[in-house]
Computed example of a mutant assay.
Amino acid sequence: MTESLHIVCPHCHTTNRLRSDQLGSAPDCGSCKKPLFTGKPVDLDGAAFDKHLQRNQIPLLVDFWAPWCGPCRQMAPAYVQAAAQLEPRIRVAKVDTEAQQALGARFQIRSIPTLALFVGGREVARQAGAMGAADIVRWVQQHAPH
Rank of each mutant, 00 (worst) to 15 (best):
Y79W: 06
A78I: 02
L86V: 00
W65G: 07
Q81W: 00
G30W: 08
N56D: 15
S20E: 13
C69K: 10
A66I: 06
Q54H: 13
A66P: 10
H11E: 13
I109Y: 00
S31Q: 14
A48M: 05
C32E: 09
A76F: 11
A76Y: 09
Q127Y: 04
R73A: 13
A99D: 13
A48G: 02
P27C: 12
I7P: 08
F107S: 03
T97A: 11
G121D: 01
I7D: 05
D50G: 15
D43H: 11
F118T: 02
C72P: 06
L53C: 00
R106G: 00
N16V: 04
M75S: 04
G120E: 12
V140Y: 09
A76P: 04
K51P: 07
A76Q: 12
N16S: 10
V42G: 03
Q141E: 15
A105S: 14
A84F: 02
F64S: 01
W65Y: 14
L60M: 04
L5V: 03
A84M: 02
D21N: 15
L18W: 01
S111K: 11
G30H: 14
P35L: 08
T14P: 06
A26M: 10
W139A: 01
P88R: 05
A125N: 13
M75G: 07
F49Y: 15
Q141A: 04
I7C: 01
W68R: 08
L61S: 03
E123K: 14
R55F: 08
D21Q: 08
K40T: 11
C12I: 00
Q74E: 13
R17H: 08
A134T: 15
D21P: 10
S25F: 13
C12M: 02
Q57H: 06
D50W: 14
G129N: 03
Q22M: 15
A102S: 14
Q57P: 00
H146S: 14
L117A: 08
T97L: 00
R122C: 07
V92S: 00
A26K: 08
S25M: 15
K51D: 07
E123C: 01
V124A: 01
C69V: 05
H11A: 13
G39L: 10
E123L: 06
D28T: 14
E123W: 10
I7W: 09
I90V: 09
Q100D: 09
S31Y: 12
W68Q: 06
E3V: 12
R73D: 08
A99C: 05
G70N: 08
C12Q: 10
Q101S: 15
D21L: 01
R122A: 13
L36C: 05
I112P: 07
T114R: 14
V137D: 13
Q74R: 11
V62T: 09
A99E: 12
C12G: 12
